[in-house]
Design a protein around this nucleic acid. Structure first.
Lengths: 147, 147
DNA sequence: GCATATAGTCAAGCCGCTTGACCATCTTTC
DNA sequence: GAAAGATGGTCAAGCGGCTTGACTATATGC
């Protein structure tokens, strides 16, 4: 594989990820939620039984302070709340509120809308294959842009 | 395609793009260049005969002020220089210096290194197919993270 | 030739993140 | 079971990279 092809691959990955992210967020906003792109990825983590701020930090690839700040935001906007952590008095379990669940569903709908053109272009099986290949490639990459 | 799958696709795209970007930049730095991820994408545009700051802005998906600031940086670090634009006295054509070309080559090498594990895992034809599919999908997305 | 659009610059501000320091609680070790 | 270290969380300060806004100089269209 030529060297320049590798850079092109990166560019197109960023372009695809960026476009998708932006369109999902636009969709979420259009559905009446005050959100920014990071929320969606926080929600997917929180929807799996809640998480501590530090766990969230690891998931998003930011410091715990940044994650805690994000949780502040989510709490302030009514999407999440901090509850006592069963079995660790230091930690606080962050869980979604009803509105948080609604926003999560909105994000999923918006994501489906955003991906639809791709499905129409490539076919569902191709898109799924794309996702599976990427999952094999970068399963642990931070859900976070690098610049 | 299930709604949640679409979000997962986005997450894995971001993870892959982020990981790749970071590893390329690490490689460039390891080769002795003072760089940040945005440089690589600026270089690919500049290497095609130079560009104006505004063109660069469009390519990177930022304001012209931000692009101009990036050019300042590149000039200060010796990677590029502003030359007179033939045929437009307002504009300045930004072109790579010799060191800029060296950095570009370093980025390409680093990119090839970063992609190598993927090629070993999926095979070259699969990786190429991945790139081509993504290129069909998001040819005009900004080379820029969305959050 | 005048009106408008475009390339670039200067200046100010801001958002989201990081670094650093600290306390409270949990866990390890002896 | 007590001391020592690790870990979750918060407070505070700072900053990098970007945006918005205002302005000048050149180009272009009618």
């Amino acid at each position: 594989m030529q060297n320049s092809e590798a850079l092109a691959l990166t560019a197109v990955l960023l372009a695809a990820a960026g476009e998708l992210t932006q369109r999902i967020n636009d969709g979420v906003v259009a559905r009446g939620f005050d959100a920014r792109p990071a929320y969606g990825f926080a929600f997917t983590r929180l929807s799996a039984g809640g998480a501590t701020a530090t766990e969230l930090a690891g998931h998003l690839g930011v410091t715990k302070q940044a994650a805690s700040q994000l949780v502040d935001e989510l709490v302030r906007k009514g999407y999440a709340e901090r509850t006592a952590h069963p079995g660790d008095a230091r930690a606080r379990l962050v869980v979604l509120t009803e509105r948080g669940w609604a926003c999560t569903r909105a994000a999923e709908e918006a994501a489906a809308d955003a991906v639809r053109p791709w499905v129409e272009l490539l076919g569902e099986s191709e898109v799924r294959a794309l996702r599976d290949q990427l999952a094999r490639i970068a399963p642990y990459g931070p859900i976070r842009p690098a610049w």
